[in-house]
Design a protein around this nucleic acid. Sequence first.
DNA 1: ATAACGATTAGCT
DNA 2: GCTAATCGTTATA
Length: 217
Amino acid sequence: MTTARRLLTESDLSPDPLVVAPALLGTVLESETPDGVVGVRLVEVEAYRGLDDPASHSYRGRTPRNEVMWGPAGRLYVYFIYGMHFCANVVCLTDGVPGAVLLRAGEVVEGLELARARRPSSRSDNELAKGPARLTGVLGLERGHNGVDLTDPASPVRLLAGDPVPAGSIRTGPRVGVATAIEVPWRYWVAGSPAVTTYRRGTKRRGRTPPARPQTR
DNA sequence: ATAACGATTAGCT
DNA sequence: GCTAATCGTTATA
């Protein structure tokens, strides 16, 4: 018998991502599909926000891809990356400023068998959702989940309150895999969780080269 | 129109 | 540690 858990509300998720991000640690993201339900306890997240954060998808303004980052808060922002992976964010900060929290890693706390079936290459249960694309993998999140309302009990993907993480167990540092703004410590994680990823700096950009030849016709 | 690159992962040295 | 895989988005021409 499982105890009913409280759904997070839009007002829980409306503050600045720098406030919402640490508050998401310990919460449970639950995804329901025809195959079953998988729940993940979030242990690593990163904040992205505004037009002055060069690492954020919102940096260059509103586009079809990042549309959902402008709110309302509590929606899921899912994007496709590296031609093969999906990453998921919780949208926050709705007052005309785009913002989101990337869900980087978690511990599977519900639907372990389905999670294992979805990620057969995983060497251990601790690694099932260790990394943003692995996390979307165990939850079965894809394109169609972009914009889903996490605060709606009828939604296929929901965000539930969890046991609070002691403030003393929360660590911060630079965001993983980004090459810009590496000085801001906008990554938050739960100290000691085996599902937290290891830090890696973003790859440097090479210079752009002009096209080989103009089109003649 | 076209090239470069990415909020990554798996597999190999 | 290194790199292939693989394609949508973006910048530039």
